[in-house]
């Protein structure tokens, strides 16, 4: 038995033991390909070996670039979804704040207080400050309020003074306050804008949490699918 035959037999034995590496199999193929005048037993072994280890072709060259395109496309879609999330939350936050802010701002800004009392007092304030005071007093049921204000002054001013001075008897009636000072109104609006900025920041955090929740949902789905 020559050395080539010995080497082939050894490699075949290892192949059928499941122990050959890629280089072993390449060597075995090379030995078979270069063996002239191969005996019958070797020819049969070669056919069996080549059929069992037929291998696979190389990956087509265009597949690699196609996979890069797939990844880039997925990246673009993910970024677009993030932008849409943030835009949607920002618009929703702005719409909510506008819905609250616009109706209450009509030249005079009210903060807390019993809107009903203030509204009814204002309806007569332009006619008579005294009447306005009586309205507030009647609503808050304090006789002291009825006598508190008598005198000149704008109806609005009258309501303001009475509202500030009257101590409501019912717990439900809160202290009323009408802002008529422009500087104070500006400060109040600045405060509202700060609140809106905070809300937008919270909105961004909400978006981040929403994205994280979405990622967790996708993980769970992938686990189930796998």
């Amino acid at each position: 038995m020559n050395s080539k035959e010995t080497e082939i037999r050894n490699l075949l034995e290892r192949f059928y033991e499941g122990e050959t590496s890629a280089s072993d199999m390449s060597r075995l193929k090379e030995l078979f390909d270069t063996w002239t005048d191969m005996p019958e037993w070797a020819a049969r072994e070669r056919r069996a070996y080549e059929a069992i280890s037929s291998g696979c072709p190389d990956m087509p060259a265009d597949v690699a670039s196609r996979m890069i395109d797939v990844i880039d496309g997925a990246d673009r879609r993910w970024r677009r979804r993030c932008v849409l999330h943030i835009a949607a939350v920002t618009c929703a936050a702005a719409a909510c704040i506008a819905a609250i802010f616009i109706p209450v701002y009509d030249g005079k800004v009210s903060v807390s207080g019993d809107m009903g009392i203030i509204a009814r007092a204002e309806s007569v304030a332009d006619v008579s400050g005294e009447a306005a005071a009586r309205v507030v007093a009647a609503e808050t049921r304090t006789e002291a309020a009825e006598n508190r204000y008598v005198g000149p002054g704008s109806g609005v001013e009258a309501v303001r003074k009475v509202a500030d001075d009257v101590k409501p008897q019912k717990k439900a009636v809160k202290r009323a306050r009408i802002i008529t000072d422009p500087d104070e109104a500006v400060r109040f609006v600045n405060g509202m804008l700060s609140d809106m900025a905070e809300s937008l920041q919270e909105g961004e955090l909400t978006v981040a949490r929403a994205i994280e929740d979405q990622r967790k949902c996708e993980e769970t789905i992938n686990k189930i699918l796998q």
Partner: peptide, 30 residues
Amino acid sequence: WRVAYGLLGDEAEASDALQESMLRLWNVRM
């Protein structure tokens, strides 16, 4: 790709399997 080809035996299907695998891996990249 060789794993996919080994199981599917077809170049086009192996490429499709590879693409689908890339997307699945992308979705769980974190």
